[in-house]
Nucleic acid binder design. Sequence first.
DNA 1: GGCCGGGGCATTTTT
DNA 2: TGCCCCGGCC
Length: 753
Amino acid sequence: MDEILEQLNDSQREAVVYNEGPSLVIAGAGSGKTRVLTYKIAYLLKNGISPYNILALTFTNKAAREMKSRIARLVDEDTARRLWMGTFHSIFSRILRREADKFGYKSNFTIYDAQDSKNLIKSIIKELALDDKIYKPASVQARISQAKNAIITPEQYLSDRELIADDNNNRRERTGQIYSIYWNRCRAAGAMDFDDLLLYIYLLFKNNAEVLERYRNQFRFILVDEYQDTNSVQHEIVRQLAEEHHRVCVVGDDAQSIYSFRGANIGNILNFRKTFPETKLFKLERNYRSTKTIVNAANSLIKKNEEQIPKTIYSENAAGEKIKVISAYSDFEEGYNVAARIAEMRMLEKYDYKDFAILYRTNAQSRIFEESLRKINIPYRIYGGLSFYQRKEVKDVVAYMRMVVNPNDEEAFKRIINYPARGIGDTTVGKITAAATTHEVSLWTVISEPLKYNLPVNAGTAAKLKKFHDLISRFISGDETQNAYETGGAIIRETGMLTDLYNDKTPEGLSRVQNVEELLNSLYEFVSTRMEQGIAEIRLVDFLAEISLLTDQDTEKDEASSRVTMMTVHAAKGLEFKNVFVVGLEENLFPSERSRDSFREIEEERRLFYVAITRAEENVVLTYAKNRFRNGKSDSCHPSRFIGNIDPEYLNMPNNQWVENTPQINRTPQPQPRTEQYVNPRKITQIERSKNEVSRESIGNLSVGTIIIHERFGRGKVLALTGENENARASVEFESFGTRQLLLKFAKYEVVK
DNA sequence: GGCCGGGGCATTTTT
DNA sequence: TGCCCCGGCC
């Protein structure tokens, strides 16, 4: 016991040993939050609390997995395994499967991912003959999700004046109806979306006193990680479970709340003490990760936010370097600067590539850095993009599995009814859907008994449907005797998917085959580990239950390999790197344009920036460009207000600072329309060939020796001038890009002197 | 059923 | 600019 407590600092220890009532642990960035959580659980276990009585909720599988293995090291493997520790969604789906009959579901329910639910919403909008320009599936989906996160059922939605008024104002008066249909369709399909996993738990506890009582008795200690990211339902569920014994410990950092757009409610953590008035507050204020400079800079930044729990984060590490701010003339040059700086730091200070991260506000920014890094052969890895389970070929196979486990699954049905092609087109599917809606049954039920449901199809189509029905039925009965891996194999062989994929010899086709193989491999691994554990029945339903809650974050990346990491700031939360480049620090990008008019959203953007800076252990570099190519055109931009939010004593501003203050310099003689001002280098070379070679001392405001700043190439010196009027050209030697020919008609530059 | 091209569009996304 | 979605066409 003592050895556990010895490894903690005073404030960590205080938080760990207090378990008699509600507690709120405010854990600053890098302050050992995970340590407190894991040690607290280990402490409880060593005090004789059964793992069965501890509920520990996280947001990511990764976090749960890491904590589990750390606890296993502190206590033992077996005890750690028996903890009720996992994501909100996975723990709750486990309970929901167990209690499914209490709310009219079966324990084999499928989980719709975001794409599934969007597709279903899309079809409902279509079926209602609504205009999908007005009822944009994504917006409707967001609206439904918000409702569920705020504990509003369709019934409540339809009688909520405020929501109705809101929808009416937006000319989307039928949103409530869509929600209601969506709700019922999910039920008919035996499917739940991610939000349902929370909402149904809440409803289950609310409507079944004896069930709630059972879980209250079981979960005698409740711990929640990242509390600043919880939404209203999650908060209410915690309240439901902890209401009697109040042994609940929530851990988080209000300064790192960056997911409000997904329903996270920062009020949950700010006002936790209102929910549980006798809450003890613990603050972990010592940052172990970063230099003093970084911590102080981050403090000075976050001080500008009004809504927060007061705290003083400090570091006992070295002072470290100032935060370097690098200004660039273009996004293009920004990319060059970052790549060059990484190469330089690696050479001079013996850093490894994996010690660097480039963090940006939007995924679209990644491309330019990819190019600049590739140009000088710096290996990199981009996080984000399509995850394994979102790839078409993987989703196809999974859809068959879903049909086997739950043939009522509407989205799986629609996905595979005609894949591989079997001549069942949209018209037929439309008829099936219509019949299903009329009779309030699933699509599968309709094709099981087409005559009973008056399905208006000709004999040929009916035969095709029967063949499909037989195929799935065969898998279903096979699944009763086989293990999951055998069923999986049967699916890819007997549907013809494997042949279909093998026939494609393109590189993409090859990678599709590999992905399907990888899926089968993971199924094999799933089955064999369970067999080793002596579990006799390993069913597909268990495999699906597991993978439907996995994400990209969970597919292992070889973190050992040395590469520069690129990702959005959101994706970087919880990670740390020696050196962090936060790029694109411009108004309307970071903070994003959309948050411009909202105080709350600006504060969230500032927290996002805070998260970015506090990822760094040793160095932070901030960059911005004065011109950026965005949405097909070049825009001039201003440095982000957030740079100015940092106390200047921690900043190392660019030595060409004066550039920002120079009001306006001579533009190109005749300003061109924006689209024409952007000239790609290839075009320039073509123009070059049709030249006349008259050398000149000066043209317009340019002379040999003039220093200019070009929109994309940056600072440079005019070496020679030739031609006249339309053909006037300058040969310019740029500091970063060597000598370039500019056709003055198009070139966008400013004269410095 | 698959391919092509025009039009619209364009944050962040732990589950 | 570049991607995605849809509709039209073979």
